[in-house]
Simulated assay, not measured.
Amino acid sequence: MNKTDRLYHITTLLRARRRITLAELQAETGASRATLMRDLAWLRDGLNHPIHWERDAQCYQWRASDRAEDAPEEVAGLWFRPSEVLALLTLDQLLRDIQPGDLMQRHLRPLEQRLKKMLRQAGLDGTAERQLGERIRVIGLAQRPVPPQSFETVGLALSQRRRLAMHYQARGNGEHSERTVSPQRLVYYRSNWLLDAWCHERDELRSFSLDAIRRPVVLSEAATDVSPKELDQTLGNGYGIFSGKAVQWATLRFTPERARWVAAEQWHPQQKGEWDAQGHWVLQIPYSDDRELVMDILRHTPEVEVLEPAGLRERVLEKMREGLVRWGAVS
């Protein structure tokens, strides 16, 4: 029985029986007298568990108090198994990866400190935590840093259900504009932050890249609320970040070599896939705007073919021809 399991078992026994002898604890855990003495001292002095030695009865007693301020400190990390400790370290790495700047670091630092305390109680000192943490790497590709002030202001408008005024530069055409929006939800997608919001200038739902938002201001007007169902119908039916209720279906066929990878991937929650007789993976995915889909198809070229619709197939071919011209392969 490892230390984590043993400490959990000791606490469970004491709470259930209220009184237990050292000999009974040895029989239950298989641990030595010296090990159990150290465990009991740690539970009592380190975690403030109400464990008392009854000299006359020669047993340990659990004396729980009804007062909240006297309640023992429950540290969940104490009960983590090794695999769960690894998951906790991964969570710590993810927290660091998604933090958009110094302001959010200050807000999330208490949570990080709590995680580290849980790790210590799980038996990892600073050196062990660092060494194990070095074996976990979270890589965020193509991350675009978000100005900390933008993230905090957007989050404030979202939580307070207020409208947000902002200056925005569209990535697609470089257009600058002043917008007033009603924030609906924050989305972390492909290592970047997006804001789904009702745009009062365009009178429709839009997704905005947080890194392209400048000079955000929370307004006094209440935000217009959009139902989750409408959000999903408008922004969730299409492919990637591009919205639209009018959905088409693309059919892609991957070579057997590439299929070994793609067949295990989720490109869209509503996708459909099947193997054909030649070992190709035939993938069907819905989309309303082909921009991001075309980029992903090109990423897998030449191991993928667009079977339908014809318009999407021609769009991908057009991009291929443009690339060949730019590279000087054709004139």
Rank of each mutant, 00 (worst) to 15 (best):
R15T: 06
Q61G: 02
Q143C: 09
H280D: 06
S209D: 05
D232H: 15
E308T: 15
A310H: 08
E322I: 15
R17H: 13
A76P: 00
G323S: 14
T224M: 14
N173V: 07
V217W: 11
R321E: 07
N237A: 09
W249P: 01
L141I: 06
Q58A: 11
W275Y: 09
A329Q: 12
A170Q: 11
M118T: 01
R299N: 04
R18A: 09
Q271K: 15
T153H: 10
E112W: 10
L103P: 01
A128M: 05
L283T: 03
A277S: 13
R18H: 10
Q61M: 09
Y239C: 02
R38T: 05
Y239T: 02
W275E: 05
L13H: 04
L205D: 00
L252K: 01
P256M: 09
R96Y: 04
I98W: 03
E318N: 10
R81Y: 13
R17Y: 14
H300N: 09
G101I: 08
K319H: 08
E257R: 15
I139S: 07
Q99L: 14
K272H: 08
S220P: 01
S209Y: 12
L86C: 05
R163M: 10
L141P: 01
V247M: 12
R315H: 06
L219D: 01
G123S: 15
L111I: 11
L115A: 04
A310V: 15
T301W: 14
R96E: 08
G126V: 09
R109A: 11
F151Y: 06
W281P: 00
R44P: 00
I285W: 02
L124R: 05
E221K: 12
I10G: 00
S209N: 11
R19F: 12
G328L: 07
E204Q: 14
A197P: 00
M166E: 02
A170K: 15
V306T: 03
K272T: 07
P147E: 08
R55L: 12
Q121W: 13
P256S: 09
H49M: 03
P228Q: 11
G273H: 03
M166F: 05
G311M: 12
L13F: 07
R315S: 03
R67W: 08
S288P: 01
R44Q: 10
M37R: 14
